[in-house]
Each structure stands twice: as C-alpha cells, then as structure tokens.
Design a binder for these strands. Structure first.
Length: 569
DNA sequence: GCCGTTTTCGGCCCGACTGTTTTCAGTCG
C-alpha cells in the first residue's frame, strides 16, 4: 500500500507551497487530497490501475497526474523540486504553535533563519522583535511554542483521556456558571486518538465561566482567555479549549465544534447553496436566525437527518444523509456478550466467576473466557492440562448461573509456521477459539506474515481472529500484513474479525471495519478485559465500529448465544 | 488545484483571540 506515502508527500507539498505563499485554495487542495488518500479504503495502486483516480472527489487532473507519476517512477518531480528549494527546518517551524507560514517566511527572509535552534536563539536574544509586526510578546509566544512542541507527545489514545474529561466537566459544572457542558471535537467524534480537548458550555455569564476555567487547579498554563473562549494546557502539555455560548446557540455550537473541519465545510457549502448561513451561533437566512438550539435542528434546516458524530469525517456521510441512506449504527446496548477476556488463570486479575458476574452486571448474557495459550509464557499461558482444569471450573460456574452462559475458549497463539498453539483435539472442545499473533519475528515481510495468518485461519476450529494488525497506538506500528487477503479468507471461511477495544489497540480501526464490512466479513467487538472493570472497554470498541459505519447486524456478539454459536461454527 | 442540473470561470467556511495595531494581519480550530 502506497497510500500513506502518497498522503505524506501531498501533505508536505501543501506545507511547502504554503511557505511559498501559494494560493491558499491551492494549498488546501493538497491537504484535502492528502487526507482523502490517507483515508482511502482501497489500495491506491488498484484505483490507479483501474483508471478510477479522477472519480474520487477532490482528485483532479493535477493530483491524478502526480499520483500516477509516483506509482510509476517512485517519485514526484515537483515534490523533489520543492524539497530542493525549501529548507526542511522551515517545514518543521510550521508545527510550532503560533508560527504560521507568514511568520516562518518572514524570519527566513529577513533574518535568514532556517532551523529550529536558530529560531530559538533569535527569540532569546531579542532579534525577532526587530521585525515588522513582531514584538516582545510574539517572541515569548514562539519560545513557548518551541517548548510545547518539544514536550508534546503527539496524540493521546481516546480511552485514556475520557476519564480526565469527565472530571474536568464535573469541575466546570461545580462553578454553577454554566448550564450545559459537553466534550466536542474529535473526542465526541470518538477518534481513536485526540490531539486536544474541546469543551462546549452554554451560559448566561460567559466571561466569568472562562475566568473560572483558566483558574482551575489542573491548569498548567493559560494560552488565551477572552470573553467566550479560553485555551489552556493541562498536565502532559494537552491543550484544552473551552467555548461558551448562549443556550439558543448551543446546538449550532455543538455541531460546529464537533467538526470535523471537512464535514463542516461541506455543510456550509450546502447552506450557501440553499441561501443560508451556518456558524456557531445558529442557522441564518440573511440576518434572521432561523434555528440553532439543537443539532438536529441545524441539520434539519439544511434538509438533512442528524448525522451521528462518529460519521462526521466527510467520508461519504453527507451524500448518504442526502439520500437518506445513513447506516443504522450499532449501539453499546446492542452487545449481548464479550468474546475475549482473561482471568487470573493467565494474566487477568479476576476469577472466572468474577468476570462472569461483572459481565452480567453490564447486561450481557454470555462471556467467553479466552486465556492465553501455553506458548505465551510472559502472559502465563495455560498448559493443556491447565486449560482442561479451567473447563471444569467454567462448567461449575455455569451450574450456578441462571440466564447467563460462560463460554469456554482460548486466545491461541499463531505459531511461526502458522499452526496453532494447542492440538486440534483440545481446540474442538472449546466454544470459542480466538487466534492471535503477538509477535512477528524481526525482518518478516508482508507476504510471510500474511501467509502465517492465513495458514492459521485454515484451521477448522478457529472462530475469531484477534487484533488483526497488532498495532499499539503510539508505540507499535501494525505488522506488515495484507488485510485485504486476510479478510477474503476470513469471509470465505466464516471467521469473524475482532475489533479489539483495548484503548491502545482499537484494532481493527475504523477504516478497517468499513473495508471488512464492504467485503462481507463478520465482526465482533471484544474488550480483551484483564480485569472485571475493563469489560467497559467494549464501549470504545463500539465507537470504532460506529466510525466504521457498522450496524448491529454486522456484529456477531449482538446475537443471542444460540445464534452466535451457530454463526461461529 | 478542484469543481459545476443555475457556472468550464470564478468561486472556494467562518469567527475568536492576540499582538502590534491606529483599522488589521496572522494564527487557530
């Protein structure tokens, strides 16, 4: 897949053109094309080979030519030319909060600054303030920006920030200066990682609420504090923005600040065509406000049904909404069980009974206990004998529970040769066999890893493929594996692919879900819980499924246990 | 650079905040 490479090249071209002061709309066309290709479900090479590049909205003559050039020659001439003319340090400077293309061009042109250290030095000795339009404060902003940049860890997994957001909102509610509060932005869209946190509030005293916000004990630094908006950094250099509006604008503001930017641009375009204007204060015809109290009203005035936040990425949801063809997305309450959890038999912290009881409290009707197999020693993998003993315990627990079933299972290692870590004679006694790859040897290429996974899927006892790419957010790239081929085998053999809901996995991801669904692969949402309270991770998995346009019918663990077993076997 | 059942040319989302300003440019989301 060259999608990522191309996406990066076009993004860099956009940045370099921006530094050159190119037409902003042209610059935006590059950013847009970069995003579209980065999110493309298909292999760009396939699309190009079938001469379908131009059918992608946002890819015109120029972009198609550059894409073809890259696929044919491995390089884009214009990109190489730009790189030869623009110092790489200038592109890096664009990432500094407070530094935009104009400022970067200015310091380069007037002072010959081309690197981050040179920029820092010039700011420290007070050289920047000599430039037109710059002063002492701007120097401080840049020094601060440099520091933030060096501290910033990048995007944080959604699952890790959600509890912190809840706590922050609780503190804001405690001030009694606002009525309604909600997280907006990528948090509300449930993106797998978030770069900052947007909180929206309705209030009759906006400036007071902003002041209270920037004085919260968890605020490390105040970036901005106006009448209706405040920006702060909290621990870990995470930025939190608060926007405050009147109650009558709450829906419009929630819509606006939920984004995504690309989705909103499309909406405004529709509004404009209809002779309306949409902003964070409402929907307007001329000067007259015609709505904005609720989000549904905003969409309705544009002739659209309410688009679920998880879909607002300009990935076809606008068209689907227009055609009244939005998917009926799966909901957390649709799950009837969990098919991948661990107990203290391996590396979990709860007993079989404790996990089952926690599952029942969540409203589930079944739970598959899938401890690690013998080879995964670091995780306390079960020997054959231990697994047989566990089967006895599961039977006992089942004997005590009414209206709930504990399914026997195992998360079985896929060995280097593609065989599974237990003999078939043992696997066939289990209700649920989850096949998993935990490490691929150094230097394995895509063909090798793909063959290994497919070999495992050929085993007649496998029901589910766990965390299919092995990626760990922020720490491990996906294995080199051809998902397309894996999906085809899974579909043909009726094997479900897992959406692993561990906050740092979320594997499959949203785009993978959508591709799997298109190909007809059954899916499951699994918490991979290692403790009773971790069953709740499944909520995150449902968010991923929703972002992947999945309906209840696409997810097997929304079925009753009887139907589930039929579907799995 | 992209796009078009009003357009193949002339548009392209829109407002808050800051800093350096005498009315606005740059940045951000």
């Amino acid at each position: 897949m060259k999608n990522r490479d191309l996406s990066r090249i076009l993004d860099e071209m956009g940045q370099m053109l921006e530094l050159r002061g190119a037409n902003p709309f042209k610059v935006n066309a590059y950013y847009r094309a970069s995003r579209i290709i980065g999110e493309l479900k298909e292999d760009i090479e396939t699309v190009a080979a079938e001469d379908r590049l131009r059918s992608i909205s946002g890819i015109g003559v120029g972009m198609a030519q550059r894409i073809s050039e890259y696929l044919e020659t491995g390089r884009v001439d214009e990109y190489e030319t730009l790189k030869g003319e623009i110092a790489p340090g200038l592109v890096e400077m664009l990432a500094i909060p407070g530094m935009g293309p104009r400022t970067v061009a200015l310091v380069h042109r007037e002072l010959g600054i081309e690197t981050l250290p040179a920029l820092e030095e010039a700011a420290r000795v007070g050289k920047l303030r000599t430039l037109p339009g710059m002063g002492e404060k701007k120097e401080a902003v840049i020094l601060r920006g440099l520091e933030v940049l060096s501290r910033r860890e990048g995007r944080v997994p959604l699952g890790l920030v959600l509890p912190r957001i809840d706590a922050m909102i609780e503190d804001l509610e405690g001030t009694r200066l606002g009525k309604r509060f909600a997280a907006a932005g990528s948090v509300r869209r449930c993106r797998e990682t978030v770069g900052d946190i947007d909180i929206l509030a309705s209030s009759t005293k906006p400036p007071q609420l902003v002041q209270a916000f920037v004085q919260m004990p968890w605020v490390e630094r105040v970036l901005a504090a106006g009448d209706t908006k405040g920006s702060v950094l909290v621990e870990g250099a995470l930025q939190v923005d608060l926007r405050v509006v009147e109650a009558r604008s709450y829906g419009a503001a929630l819509q606006y600040f939920t984004g995504s930017k690309a989705h909103n641009i499309r909406l405004r375009d529709i509004a404009k065509t209809a002779g309306l204007k949409v902003n964070e204060y409402g929907v307007f015809r001329g000067e007259t406000r015609i709505g904005g109290r609720t989000e549904a009203e905003v969409y309705r005035l544009l002739g659209l049904p309410l688009v679920p936040p998880e879909l607002r990425e300009d990935r076809g949801e606008i068209e689907a909404a227009r055609d009244d063809a939005l998917p009926d997305l799966v909901e957390v309450g649709d799950l009837r069980g969990d098919l991948h959890v661990h107990t203290r038999w391996s590396d979990g912290s709860g007993s079989v009974a404790e996990m089952a009881e926690a599952a029942r409290r969540r409203g589930y009707r079944y739970l598959a206990v899938t401890d690690h197999s013998r080879s995964l020693r670091v995780a306390g993998g079960l020997s054959e004998t231990a697994l047989e003993e566990q089967l006895d315990e599961i039977e006992k627990v089942n004997g005590r529970m009414r209206g709930f079933r504990v399914l026997s299972g195992a998360e079985v290692e896929i060995m280097a040769d593609g065989r599974l870590d237990y003999p078939d004679s043992l696997l066939e006694r289990l209700d649920v066999v989850v096949a998993a790859l935990h490490s691929v040897g150094r230097g394995r290429d895509e063909a090798q890893v793909t063959a290994r996974v497919i070999q495992a899927l050929e085993n007649p006892h496998v029901n589910i493929l766990a965390h299919p790419t092995g990626r760990l957010l922020g720490s491990r790239e996906p294995y080199p594996v051809n998902l397309e081929k894996v999906f085809e085998v899974a579909r043909d053999r009726g094997i479900a692919v897992e959406i692993n809901a561990q906050p740092d996995r979320l594997d499959l991801d949203d785009l993978g879900c959508r591709r799997a669904r298109d190909l007809g692969v059954p899916l499951v949402v699994s918490s991979d819980a290692h403790a009773p309270e971790q069953l709740g991770f499944a909520d995150l998995g449902v968010s991923v499924a929703r972002r992947g346009w999945l309906a209840k019918g696409d997810i097997l663990n929304t079925l009753t246990v009887g139907r589930l077993m039929k579907a799995l076997h």
